[in-house]
Each structure stands twice: as structure tokens, then as C-alpha cells.
Simulated assay, not measured.
Amino acid sequence: MAWPTPLALSKAKWTSRAPVQAVLLWQAIALGGGLSMIGSMLVWGLAPLGSDLISALIAGWRLITGDPDVVYPGIVHLFALSTALLFGFHLVLTLARAAWRTTRQRAKHRQLLRLLSNPSDTRPNTLVLDHDMPVAYCVPGIAQSVTVLSRGLLTKLSPEEQAAVIAHESSHLDQRHDLLILAFTAWNEALPWLPTSRLSLDAVRQLIEMLADDKALEQVSRQTLLKAIVTVAAAAAPEASGSAGAGSSNAQQVGMPGGEVSSRRLQRLLTPEEPLAKPQRGLVLACTVLLMVCPTVLLIAPRLLAW
């Protein structure tokens, strides 16, 4: 969970053929890994109190209530218990801090947009920036989300290409990709010493861009979407380091995928790949379920077998 599996998945070629299943598998690896790290320390710490989690918790309650017949765990086991509790608290606190920071950044960004943009006359929940560089990103919100377009994008892209860009950004909002990015961002911040946490964040960012591309392809042709992506990326590249920044920078500040135009994403649009076969997708989903269920089941397996 911590090293070989994420490393192998980040290099796998099949993920672009089944981005939905790949995203679910990444989530299962992160959740299963977290449960395994916490659960292993928890089981070690509770080992003197019982052979499984349920019996150990019952014995722990009896110990707290003063039962003299319960064996008191030693200092090593207490250290393991403290480590499990502290690590679990660290993960939850990091997620809460990341959510709070992202919420504040979005609020500030919305204030700037009120000053620097105007509502679109033709599209609901869309703001138009008075800037020559093609920019397109979305700002998620609890009550209302908005899509931000620049004047340069509306000028340089044809109506069909504009529809492709808007469909792409709308899919990010409809599928709430910002929550997915938030979870993996928090995981990366909680475990910065683990190289694979960064691999998972980068992989998920790329996969949700593919998901948004697939959604846009339901409304426009592949050539139209590809041309729109290349036009925006080519225009933004020379100014990416300037004060205005690129659309991806703005998107990342508000907790959304940056719309990175990776070679793998372009290759996927240039050369369509056959979707993963149903048996293979089923196998991936089965692995996903097992990765989430097994750590929890193993904690209470001895008691289940005894019953």
C-alpha cells in the first residue's frame, strides 16, 4: 500500500482506458493504506487484551472500569496505541485543515472575481474575465459553483471549441472532482515523507482530466476538443510564469485540477484506445472492494471465525 502498489499503478498503461475504475482503485489504496497503518498499530497495542479487535476493546473497557482480572498492557503496547491514535488524529486534522484552507482560498478568489469579471450574457453561472489570454477554470461552491472564462478564450475559440471547454469544466463541477483532489492533497500533506503520496495526487489529477475529456466528447467531436485544448495550452505556456498566471494556477488555488496537458492525455485524444474489457473492469472493481474491506475484516476476523 505504501510503496510497491502505488508505484506500479502510476506506471500502468491500462488506467487511461478505464479512468473511472482507476480513480476508484486509487481511492481504495489510500483508504486501505490508512486503515492498515492505523490498524496494525492498534492491533499491536491491544494484543495483551485480546486476540481480535472486538474482544480487546471489551477487555479495554473492563480495564478502564477497574476490573482487576484484565492484564494491563505494557509500555510498548501503550506506545503502539498512542501512535495509532495520534496518526489517526493527524490524518483527520490534516484533512480538516486542507478543507478549511481551500474554503478560504475560494472565498478570496470569489471576491477577486466580483471585481475583475462580469457575468456572461449567454451562459448561467459563468463569469468572463477581461483578459487576452485564453483562460478557463471552475470555482466549486457549496451553494453555487461558477465557471470562469476569459475574453481571449471567447475570441480565439470557435463556438464549438468553446462548448468543448465549457463541457470539460462543467464535468469537473458535476462530478465534484474538487473533493477528490482535496482528499489526495490532504493525504500528500499528511505524509510528505512518503514519495508515493505525491504519485497518487499527480495520477488522480491526470485521471480526472481524462474523465472530463470523456464527458466533453459526449457533446463535441474529438478534433474540436483537441484543438481547443491545444489552443488554450499554447497560448498559456509563454505567460505561465508571468504575473497573470495560467488558468491551471488559478484552478489549483481554489482546489481544482489544473487542467495539465500531459503527453499521455494528448496521446489518448489523438489515438483513441479501446475501453478496458468488462471482465478486466470487473477485476479492478473487485480489487477495489477487497482493498477497502480486507483491512477492516482482518481486525475482527478471529471473532467472526469463532462465531
Rank of each mutant, 00 (worst) to 15 (best):
G33V: 00
G33F: 06
G33Q: 01
G33W: 01
L35Y: 02
L35G: 00
S36A: 13
S36I: 01
S36W: 15
M37Y: 03
G39A: 05
G39R: 01
L42S: 02
V43N: 02
V43F: 02
W44D: 09
W44Y: 07
G45K: 01
G45N: 04
L46W: 08
L46V: 08
L46C: 07
L46Q: 02
A47K: 12
P48Q: 05
L49Q: 05
L49G: 04
G50M: 13
G50K: 07
G50E: 09
S51I: 10
S51Q: 12
S51Y: 09
S51N: 13
S55H: 06
S55P: 00
A56G: 04
I58D: 06
G60A: 15
G60E: 12
R62M: 10
I64P: 00
T65R: 15
T65H: 09
D67Y: 08
P68A: 13
P68E: 07
D69T: 13
D69L: 14
V70D: 01
V70S: 06
V70Y: 05
V71S: 11
Y72M: 13
Y72Q: 12
Y72C: 07
Y72H: 08
P73A: 13
G74A: 12
G74Q: 11
G74H: 11
G74T: 03
I75K: 13
V76M: 11
H77S: 14
